[in-house]
Amino acid sequence: MNHNTKGENKMTGSGTIVNSAAVIAGGIIGLTLKGGLKQRFQDIIMQALGLSVIFIGIAGVLQEMFVISASGLETRGTMKMVLSLVLGAVTGEFININKHTETLGDWLKRKFSTPDDNGFVEGFVSASLTICIGAMAIVGSLQDGLTGDASMLYIKAVLDGMILIVFTSVFGKGAVFSVIPLFLFQGSITLSASLVQPFLTEEAVSYLSFIGSALIFCVGTNLMFKTNIKVANLLPALIFAVLFHSLPI
């Protein structure tokens, strides 16, 4: 992620713009499908979506947790994971990020939803967490800001568009408004890339992806099993992940 001249003639920030457009487009397609889906189809799609998100989270965690050494397969970072998640949970619960996120969802619902749009807030929160948490969002935004290379965000745009088709076909228009936190989150990283890049070394981003994947797993669990894990209140764990990545434990 070193600064170079590769992207001098490229438009910085184009990755987030394309990503946001893909989310909206996927949402529109999903809303079209929702009108023709019976409840039993919505239920099975929800289960499939939850299962998919669970395995995306598991894959990310295992990729960062397990390493192959001369003596075989070893684990790493488990104590740092525990510290990051516990301290992140305490911090997030103190701030009550989950409540503020739902309050925003409720406000958007009052402004833009219809009376029968019961899944608006859940769709907004779940979709926001799914598309905003992850290494692609952070690393892609950094690359876009530092070099003008938005290729990673273009790939993410395709994935997010497909995810939004499914989310909106189940939850309705609330999921489409996940474009707001996506645009603000990735855009702010792109604009401040030169400032945050020294803190996000390759090792730090790797560990941040580790914790982010664990949170994505929690989102999938909520979708699949109707659990009530307050994933938004766990978000400060990502900050602790960057702070703790170099600890020798």
Rank of each mutant, 00 (worst) to 15 (best):
N2R: 12
N9I: 06
K10M: 06
M11P: 01
G13W: 07
T16W: 07
I17S: 05
V18G: 01
A21G: 06
K38P: 01
F41V: 13
F41A: 12
Q42I: 12
I44W: 09
V53G: 08
G60V: 11
F66V: 14
V67Y: 01
S69T: 15
S69F: 08
L73C: 05
T78W: 09
T78D: 06
M81T: 15
V86N: 07
L87C: 11
V90C: 09
V90E: 02
V90D: 05
T91E: 00
I97L: 15
I97W: 00
E102H: 10
E102P: 03
L104Y: 05
W107C: 03
W107R: 04
R110W: 07
R110A: 14
S113N: 08
T114E: 15
P115V: 12
D116A: 01
D117K: 02
G119I: 02
G119T: 03
F120L: 04
G123T: 09
F124V: 05
S126E: 12
A127H: 07
L129N: 13
M136I: 11
I138L: 15
G140F: 03
S141V: 03
L142V: 06
Q143V: 02
Q143H: 07
A150Y: 13
A150R: 04
S151I: 03
L153W: 04
L153K: 03
Y154Q: 03
I155F: 12
K156R: 03
K156Y: 02
A157H: 06
D160A: 10
G161W: 02
L164D: 08
L164A: 09
V166D: 00
V166A: 10
F167K: 08
F167A: 10
K173L: 14
K173C: 10
A175V: 09
F183A: 10
Q186D: 09
G187K: 08
L191Y: 14
L191R: 07
A193R: 01
S194Y: 01
L195E: 10
L195R: 08
L195F: 10
L195Q: 09
V196H: 02
Q197H: 04
P198F: 09
E202P: 05
L208E: 03
L208P: 02
G212K: 02
A214P: 04
I216Y: 09
I216T: 15
F217R: 14
T221E: 02
N222I: 11
T227F: 09
I229L: 14
K230D: 04
P236D: 01
A237W: 00
I249S: 01
